[in-house]
Amino acid sequence: MKSISSLVCALGLGLVMAVAASACWVPELPDGTVFSCASNEDCALAGEKCVPREGLSGYCCMPSANATEVCNGVDDDCNGKKDDLAATCYGGPEGTAGKGLCKAGTPKCGANNEQLCEGEVLPTEELCNRVDDNCDGVTDEGFDLQQDVENCGACGTACSAGQTCLAGKCTGRVQQTCTEGSDDDGDGLVGCEDTDCANQACGTGCTCKSNVAAETTCTDGVDNDKDTKSDCADTDCNNQSCGTGCLCKSNVAAEISCGDSNDNDRDTKIDCADTDCANQACGTGCTCKSNVAAETACGDGNDNDKDTKIDCADTDCANQACGTGCTCKSNVAAETTCNDNVDNDKDNKVDCADTTDCPTGTACGTGKTCKSNGTCS
């Protein structure tokens, strides 16, 4: 049980002066302690503890609600020291302390009991300066050293007035947009007139060539270079593709795929029926002649011109070779080499034995002729 003197001391110094309480010791000034103690039992209020001090008597102290020291001239955590703050302080976002420029500071109480953080460095806006200003672990992010005229190639390297930054180097200002009427480098030359635009796009289906806009898409029905001519009607498209199986020739679309059954040049005529295909291949073993498909491979066993007649049976093959030592005659294959021991016309008769194609008297070798009995001597 606490002594009567302890209870009296709890009432304050004024009451101590009025009551003879020799057991209640009031320390000398300037210590400032009102109630001294030797142990927690000497303190009157519940929760108070006796704080020992070297060379002085202890004093009764009531810890603050969270026992955290703040700047208020009071020993909030009852450790015998007033306003002894944490070892370090930092007011920046979590995870930024210790990165880049950011660092923690030292807590300090100000003249008006405000808490200061002396020496701390907080994140700032990122600058192009080879330093991690915003303390996110990355340096100089957000700056394009390849195109930034203020930081061209390296932070702090600024291009002169009138220059632009290309590939990290300051150069004379270059036209970037080559469409009609554009002069973004301010040199008085617009669009393709500016040599900066050579071989650059001047819009969809348009490329700058020799300082003028040239049509490069020749099948979209659009006047891409704005010269009032579109597609094959524009000389820019000469010998350029006007679509699958189509090529611009002499300012018109011409069929060049003559065996696909498509009207590739959109003139209502298909394949060999189109004069564009004259003497052009209409497929394997097929050539366009007089506006129709003609068989030209006469020994492959295929109806190459799709007229239901194959090889020598097709009049297209008249007097044409039907293979080695074979020529089409009167719509059939005929043996023309009579001394190679080969059935060249595939009629099961070889050389002089093929009496129709190699009749008596036909040469069958040096100084030899076919005899009536089908031999060569």
Rank of each mutant, 00 (worst) to 15 (best):
V292H: 09
N40I: 08
G58F: 01
N199Q: 13
I270Y: 11
E120P: 03
C298A: 01
L122P: 00
G188L: 04
D260T: 02
K82P: 02
D31K: 13
R173M: 10
L13H: 12
T268V: 13
E335H: 02
L122V: 07
G92Y: 02
E295Q: 09
K329V: 06
K229L: 15
I4K: 12
S36P: 03
V34C: 06
N40L: 10
V149M: 08
C288I: 01
N304W: 11
V121A: 05
G162P: 01
T171G: 14
S64H: 03
A297C: 08
L122S: 03
C208I: 01
A294Q: 09
N112G: 09
T96K: 15
A313W: 01
K306Q: 12
R53H: 13
E118P: 10
T216V: 15
N291F: 07
D83S: 08
T177L: 09
C286T: 02
K209T: 15
T375K: 14
G95R: 02
N199D: 14
T362G: 00
W25R: 05
S57I: 08
T204K: 13
C237I: 04
D227F: 08
G283Q: 03
A293F: 01
D236K: 06
L7F: 12
S57V: 06
T356C: 01
A198L: 14
V74T: 11
K289E: 10
R173T: 08
G188I: 10
E118G: 05
E114N: 14
I270T: 15
G98E: 06
T228L: 15
T284M: 08
E180N: 09
C71G: 03
V16T: 06
P63L: 00
G12P: 00
V292E: 10
T275N: 13
T106A: 05
C364E: 00
P107K: 01
